Simulated scan of single mutants.
Amino acid sequence: MSRTYQNILVAVDGSKSAECAFKKAVYIALRNNAQLTLVHVVDTRSFVSIEAYDGTMAERAERYAEELLEDYKKEAAAKGLQTLNTIIEHGSPKTIIPKQTAKKINADLIICGATGLNAVERLLIGSVSEQITRSASCDVLVVRTDDDVTL
């Protein structure tokens, strides 16, 4: 029996791995006629350690997130996906994505890359994809390959 997904959430951070996850998410959303939502989490924990924090780093991170999501939106439209929701969250991606954002949109599938941008954190306390897999109450697809998906 084949599973049909209705609400797909894909986590993007600008990494190559997230790009691969996005491409597969568009394909799966089109194949399932599903709603696709992109989430980018601005990791505010890194701002705490900067003593001279004056808001400019947060503003740059917010602008980066907006531009990243807008680029993905254009790419999805070019592939035939007409509706794409985007969400910018703030906090720790490991907890925000599976426990907050997925519940907010009633996700039945979360798609993420196997490795993201933060290699040091992954070494010390595990990857975001690992935590999503452990914490999510829905199916999770961890994308490891950059195989091209053709529609």
Rank of each mutant, 00 (worst) to 15 (best):
N33D: 10
R63G: 14
A61K: 03
T95Q: 11
T83E: 15
E67I: 03
G126V: 12
R63F: 05
A58D: 14
G80Q: 01
S137R: 10
L141G: 01
L141C: 03
V128L: 07
K74W: 03
A78I: 01
R63W: 04
A52N: 02
E70T: 06
A11P: 08
T83Y: 09
D13Y: 01
A78H: 12
S135K: 07
T133L: 10
V41M: 06
P93F: 02
V149F: 08
V48F: 04
V149G: 03
T133A: 07
Y27E: 08
E70C: 09
I88D: 04
K73A: 11
G91M: 00
S127I: 01
E19A: 06
K104Q: 14
K73P: 01
T115Y: 10
E75R: 07
E130Q: 12
H90C: 07
E51P: 08
N118C: 04
Q6Y: 10
R60M: 09
T101I: 14
Y27C: 07
T115R: 13
N106R: 15
Y5H: 02
K104A: 12
D148Y: 00
A58P: 06
V10P: 12
A107I: 13
M1T: 14
A65C: 11
R3D: 04
P93D: 06
I28W: 03
E67C: 12
L141V: 06
D148S: 12
E121H: 12
